[in-house]
Amino acid sequence: MTKRLLLYSALIIFAVFFFYPFLWMVVTTFRPEADIGALSILPARVTLENYIAVFRKIPILRAFFNSLLVSVSVTAGVLAFCSMAGYALSRLKFRGRNAIFFLILFTMMLPFQITLIPQYLLMVKFHWVNTYLALIIPFTMSAFGIILFRQHFLTIPQDLIDAARIDGCSEMHILFRILWPLSVPTLVTVGILTFMTIWNDVLWPIIVIRNQDLMTMPQLVTLFAVGGRAEGLLGLKLASATLLALPIVVAYSFFQRYFIESMATSGLKS
């Protein structure tokens, strides 16, 4: 009995340790600047002025829209292109198939530190700096996504595909109309992984976007925090951080099981 008590106490202490800072952050954003820094989470005075100031100082709604546009476009591209490649590698027989498969496995091991600089220079050459294209096109393919689709398509019975072919379905029709509805878990996994990676990425946007109207949300908030525009006011910084966290936390609270399972598969990468 005491042992169980000990175990639960440990779990609860860690839960507080992971959750309290977030709670404190949200409460702090509703405090006037003078009250910030207090340990407690019960605000003495409540104000919306931090949020009003953030909306006045930076185009955060525009940045939210940019992030959404970029993340949705990339995710759609990854799902379409990776499932096509995964289908070709698992259910179509052609010469060179194994060579391509090993090429894909090999590219998964390449660290991004090698390609970062030349990819930026490519964006300069294409005149894609300061455009959505730089944020979208280079990411519409994922070696890991291809592998996941390939593994999944291998589990689908050949009879089903043969029957569709006899009925005269095109391979496109087979992939998108017959296999996709049978692949919802894989689509969800690849979708969440891609969306999260793109939504949270900061390094690449900081490199290729300088026009404030095209900035993604994490980029805008980062520059707001390290640049001078928050005027060192903590309430403002944390309010912008809370707005940045909000969309993902809302999505996570509804679909946490899918987030956790998807991100756990990313561990298999190594």
């Binding site: 839960a15 992971f18 800072p21 925090a225 903590l234 944390l238 951080a241 966290a245 936390v249 996570y252």
Partner: peptide
Amino acid sequence: FRAVYFLPVVVSGVVITMLWNQL
């Protein structure tokens, strides 16, 4: 418990860093 421990994983590193900067 699993969902609470996982929360910082899904939140952007920018948010986490700004929060800990204050902590």
